[in-house]
Amino acid sequence: MPALTMRGVAARLGVAAMSTYRYVPSKEDLVLHMADAAFGEASYGADAPGDWRARVELGARTLWGLYRKHPWLAQTGSLTRPLPVHNLMVHGKWVLSALDAHGLGPTTLFGIHVLLYSHVQGLAVHLEREAHAQAATGQTEDEWMDGRTPVLRELVESGRFPAFAKVVGAFEHGYDLRLDALFELGLKTLLDGLTPLVEGRPAIAGCEGTRSGSRPSPGPR
C-alpha cells in the first residue's frame, strides 16, 4: 500500500498523472474502489449451510481467503474506522444473518460480529507487514529470528521469565508461527466460547443480558 500513488497508477496506465483524477478524486477514493472490488471476488451461494456455526465458519474462512489473496486488503481499514464499501457489507450481512434468529440483543449480536471480524482482520494485517519487512530488510522471518537468537537466549536464561523459558524450552526445533494455523485455532476457540451464548445455554458472565424475553439492563447512571 505505501507504494501505491496516483502518479504511479497513471504511469502504469500510460496516461498523464492528472488524468486519473477525472475518475477518482484522491488516493483514498482509489483504495476504496480497490477494496470494494477485492471483497467482491467472493460471495455466498443459495446452497449455504443452515447451521449458524457452519455459516459463520464459512464467512470467516471466505474473508481469510480474500486477505490471503490480497495481503494489502487488511491494511485499508481499521476495526474502529471500517470501510464504507458495499462488498464488505456483504460479508458482514452473512455473519449477522447467521446469528440473527437466536434471540440475541442487538448489542450482543453486533458485538459478536465485530469480535469475529477482528480475529480475521487482526491476523491478516501481518501478511502485508511481513511482506513489507522482508522487502525492507532482505531477510525472511526465519532469518530475522535467527539474528535475534542471542537476545532471546539471554531472556530465557535470565531467570526472570520462568513460564516463558519453560514453554520455549519445550520446543525441540523452535516455534513455527503459522498464521493459517492461528486463524483456525482462534476461530474454533471463539466459536466454542460463543456457542453457549448463541444457543441460549447458561449465560457467560459479563455478557449482555438482552436475549428475547430477558429483563433489559438498566440505563446509564
Rank of each mutant, 00 (worst) to 15 (best):
T140N: 06
E141G: 07
E141R: 13
E141L: 13
E141Q: 07
D142K: 13
E143M: 13
E143P: 09
W144Q: 13
M145N: 05
M145W: 13
D146V: 12
G147V: 10
G147P: 05
R148M: 14
R148Q: 14
L152Y: 09
L152E: 05
R153S: 10
E154S: 10
L155G: 05
V156A: 14
E157G: 08
G159Q: 12
G159S: 10
F161K: 07
P162T: 13
A163V: 15
A163I: 03
A163S: 07
F164C: 02
F164A: 09
A165S: 08
A165L: 01
K166F: 14
K166A: 15
V167E: 11
V167L: 06
G169E: 05
E172R: 08
H173P: 00
G174T: 05
G174P: 02
G174D: 10
G174M: 09
Y175F: 14
Y175G: 04
D176H: 01
L177G: 07
L177M: 06
R178Y: 04
R178Q: 06
L179Q: 05
L179C: 09
L179M: 08
D180C: 05
A181P: 04
A181F: 08
L182F: 14
F183H: 06
E184N: 10
E184L: 03
L185I: 08
L185A: 09
G186N: 04
G186A: 03
L187Q: 06
K188F: 00
K188C: 00
L190I: 04
L190S: 04
L190Y: 02
L191H: 00
L191K: 01
D192Q: 08
G193H: 02
L194M: 11
L194Q: 00
T195M: 06
T195C: 05
V198I: 13
E199V: 08
